[in-house]
Design a protein around this nucleic acid. Structure first.
Lengths: 182, 182
DNA sequence: ACCAAACGAGACGATGCGTCTCGTTTGTGC
DNA sequence: GCACAAACGAGACGCATCGTCTCGTTTGGT
């Protein structure tokens, strides 16, 4: 009579270990022990660590903010990017993403999974807002908006401050939203 | 009567393993074996893998291109960034940087070393060219120029194509070089 | 109440870490 | 030339983790 399902216990173990002991504690053995589960049970449900981490991450499913109106495009983008910065900087997300990002550097197939399951949805969300705002080239604008955020996170530099983010959004909109030349 | 110095043999081993077997082959044991050297000799000269990889990378010391004239600022930047893209995409550099980038994600002190020894010199080089060209805010322009390049490399997306890079440079110069508002 | 499937636990060999202990080479002072 | 100490190549060691495997033990369906 399992009070809690195995999957939930495993996801909880992953999130707890990430928050309490950081990305390097996210091992199959450590997760199994913390979840009170056999290693074989983990391997039965997930092919390896990356898949398990992706699932634990997505199970926390922070739904992105509502589609919103076309009013105040810069404000909407700023809010959305601010939320993204906060999310990648706070535990347990930060440690989960660090662990995944490390693996991405040495495993191309995990990179593909990351792009498809995490990056592209985020880009699509920005696309949608930009397109609703009449941007000329949403994919490019989305990349320009997000690239410095990821760059700083990867390099472990301080994230864009409020004013920096404000200016960044307006600059990209100026560039792509209307006045840019080919 | 050592024909070749230990340091040179170790560096060669690192570069060979990186090029032939990829980032995951860059282990202390593998490097020692390939170099025909004892592990203790490695630990005597370097505190760990990251320091060893940094040294091997910097020993290949591709000197950046000449300072150049202030003419054709966009062309100069484009050439410089194109060189950077090529360098991070070609072996053995690519595998060395992948291995280091993976460690950066889980070791803050290695991230600091990376920024100081590799990132900041590169940024400074771009700063210098921008400043000579009369840019209003060289540090910010340099970050905007480099961020998408690193972003794509980290995410293992295809690098900026020639035309994309051309446009990118001109866009950032338009934005920062003169017409941008606060 | 039975049985098969799934389970927790952990042993196993492989690999890498960082430390340590061997003999052996090497180069310097005499 | 010789002797000695420092540095060396080699690899054993204990630890951690991987992914596979083998145990009894639960557990859920009939």
């Amino acid at each position: 009579m399992a009070r809690t399902s195995t999957v939930v216990r495993v996801h909880s173990a992953v999130l707890e270990l990430a928050a309490e002991r950081g990305p390097t504690a996210l091992t199959m053995e450590g997760i199994a022990a913390r979840a009170g589960v056999g290693k074989q049970t983990l391997y039965r449900s997930w092919p390896g660590i990356p898949a398990l981490l992706f699932d634990a991450l997505l199970a926390t499913g922070g739904e992105p903010s509502a589609p919103g109106t076309a009013d105040d495009l810069p404000g909407q983008l700023e809010q959305m990017l601010k939320a993204a910065i906060t999310e990648i900087s706070a535990e347990p997300h930060a440690s989960l993403l660090r662990a995944i990002s490390a693996i991405i550097q040495t495993d191309e197939s995990v990179a593909r999974d990351y792009r498809e399951r995490l990056l592209e949805p985020q880009l699509a969300h920005v696309h949608a807002v930009l397109a609703a705002g009449g941007s000329l080239d949403p994919p490019r604008a989305a990349e320009l908006l997000l690239a410095p955020i990821f760059y700083r996170w990867f390099m472990r530099l301080p994230p864009l401050s409020g004013p920096e983010l404000h200016r960044h959004v307006h600059d990209v909109l100026d560039l792509i939203g209307g006045t840019a030349g080919g």
